[in-house]
Design a protein around this nucleic acid. Sequence first.
DNA 1: TTCAAAGGTATATACAGCGAACCATTCCCC
DNA 2: GGGGAATGGTTCGCTGTATATACCTTTGAA
Lengths: 254, 254
Amino acid sequence: MSRQSSAGPPTAGLSSDLLLGPVSGTNTFEETVQRLLQTVRLGLIAPGERLPAERELAAQLGVSRDTLREAIASLAGAGYLISRRGRYGGTFVSNVLPAPPLLAEKNPTGASHPSITAAQIDDVLTLRDILEVGGARAAAGRVLSPPERELLWSSLEAAAAADADEYRRVDSRLHLYIGELAGSPSLVPLLADVRMRLNELLDAIPLLAPNIAHSNKQHEQIVIAILTGRPDAATDAMREHLSGTALLLRGFLE
Amino acid sequence: MSRQSSAGPPTAGLSSDLLLGPVSGTNTFEETVQRLLQTVRLGLIAPGERLPAERELAAQLGVSRDTLREAIASLAGAGYLISRRGRYGGTFVSNVLPAPPLLAEKNPTGASHPSITAAQIDDVLTLRDILEVGGARAAAGRVLSPPERELLWSSLEAAAAADADEYRRVDSRLHLYIGELAGSPSLVPLLADVRMRLNELLDAIPLLAPNIAHSNKQHEQIVIAILTGRPDAATDAMREHLSGTALLLRGFLE
DNA sequence: TTCAAAGGTATATACAGCGAACCATTCCCC
DNA sequence: GGGGAATGGTTCGCTGTATATACCTTTGAA
């Protein structure tokens, strides 16, 4: 091995991946847009509900009001948000959310609908498995406060009661809340992120009633396992639940 | 329930966490510094080895050469990097890395060494458990190419052969490579990040020889489980391995 | 001696984000 | 009906960050 100086293992194969990746280039503006989009797409604020006032929200996000306004304008243009002025006005989540862009951004070549590579699917599904299964397990291993238990159960019921067009959103909320119960604040944004990526994929395939019923049963198992403090059961239930979606996705997209 | 418009569950308790958090405010400069620091602290480029040339590295990172230079200068000032000019010069990782800052940034009050709250420790440890255990399991569930198997094994041997002062670095490398084998590119940066946070904590406690020996044995079990394709065994081995560190940390810091 | 490859320096430009003040609209309450 | 208050809408200028480009300096191998 032709190393150049002191001791240590060869660096091959790993360093490149971390060093080479382009720096995120995170505009404050872009990041703000993403945050708002998450809030809407993941159902954290339901259609018809109001966001905090601009000045207030800007302060909470640590962003100038100008930048926040640009982000809102951008999402309003896309049909996600609606602003109303005057007293008791504000910025509201659109009552009817726009159909998501369906990815596939039209290759100039006109190829049917790829731009979703198998590698991307694997990436999302694998990461989701790790985060959600681990999160469910951690949640089941903690002692939950009564309000937490109540909110968890009501999230479950909300998912069970939802009809097809709001299912994706309510489902996301439930999963996100489970992650929140894991007790690692840093986990939540990661979960939200992978959930967004997953939803983009799910938007490309039909949502069938039997699948929903099945999901609801599994949700119940997961929640009960968490509430009764059985990490292994929660792990298994979540893993099985996710594998259903994974199979569905791979079947339709690969 | 005093809702305002259409159907859906109450939003209480969850939305705040995602919406309210301040936007990262990521300077390109700061981010570049972090990337370089990771590369050094996690042992991706060993002491004495060379970084790519400035112009080249800047291109890879998607950053102007000026910004990259500022980052390098900053790290050179802190003793992590050394630049040499002229042909066959370049930027090198310092042969003797500076002792890490030991956190605790000196409260004006002069309090001994807190600024590490129990919540922070739990956050890091929980997240690490989720990511590393999940990653090891995923890695064990994949078929690995011969070069991958070889590199994994040699990383293990490097960790076993390391002496105390380079152990942290080589250990990080091994764990990171296991994560890379999980097959989810997005996982690696997350792992690197949590690993950095963990190392900051570990730097505050002594590193004992028996611990190292013990770790090495566990590493072997993990790697073998991965190489032989036994996800459950890999999961258990990794979980046990991490619990050792977790106990150690909680004992010293809480 | 020459040349190539690397770091070091200087300058001009673009624009993103911030802060602050002010305008316009709407609705409750008196 | 009128006043007040809370909200979004608009404007302007300042500051700092990042980029791009060109050129200089150092070093060591050929």
